[in-house]
Amino acid sequence: MTPSAHLMMSWLCGASTVVTKRERIIITLAGLAPDLDGAGLLIDWFTGTTRYYQQWHHVFGHNLVFAVAIATCAGLLARTRQARVWLMSFVAIHLHLFTDLIGSKGPDGYQWPIEYLYPFSNTGLTWQGQWALNAWQNQLIWLALLLACISYIKRKNISFFELFGNKLDEAARSLCIRLSARYFR
Rank of each mutant, 00 (worst) to 15 (best):
Thr2Ile: 10
Pro3Phe: 11
Ala5Lys: 00
Met8Glu: 01
Ser10Val: 00
Ser10Pro: 04
Ser16His: 09
Val18Gly: 02
Val18Lys: 02
Val19Ile: 13
Thr20Met: 05
Thr20Tyr: 03
Thr20His: 07
Arg22Val: 06
Arg22Lys: 12
Leu29Ser: 00
Gly31Phe: 00
Leu32Ala: 04
Asp37Leu: 04
Gly38Ala: 07
Ala39Trp: 10
Gly40Glu: 05
Phe46Pro: 13
Arg51Met: 09
Tyr52Asp: 15
Tyr52Gln: 13
Trp56Gly: 11
His57Asn: 12
His58Arg: 12
Gly61Trp: 00
Ile70Leu: 04
Ile70Pro: 01
Leu77Asn: 04
Arg79Met: 14
Ala83Ser: 08
Arg84Asp: 10
Ser89His: 02
Val91Leu: 13
His94Ser: 07
Leu97Pro: 01
Lys105Ile: 05
Gly106Pro: 11
Asp108Lys: 14
Ile114Cys: 02
Thr123Arg: 14
Gln128Trp: 14
Gly129Asn: 08
Gln130Val: 11
Leu133Tyr: 15
Gln139Lys: 14
Leu143Thr: 15
Ala144Arg: 06
Ala144Gln: 10
Leu146Gly: 13
Ser151Lys: 15
Ile153Phe: 02
Lys154Ser: 08
Ile158Leu: 06
Ser159Asn: 09
Phe160His: 04
Phe160Leu: 07
Asn166Gly: 11
Ala172Arg: 09
Ala172Lys: 04
Arg173Asp: 03
Arg182Gln: 14
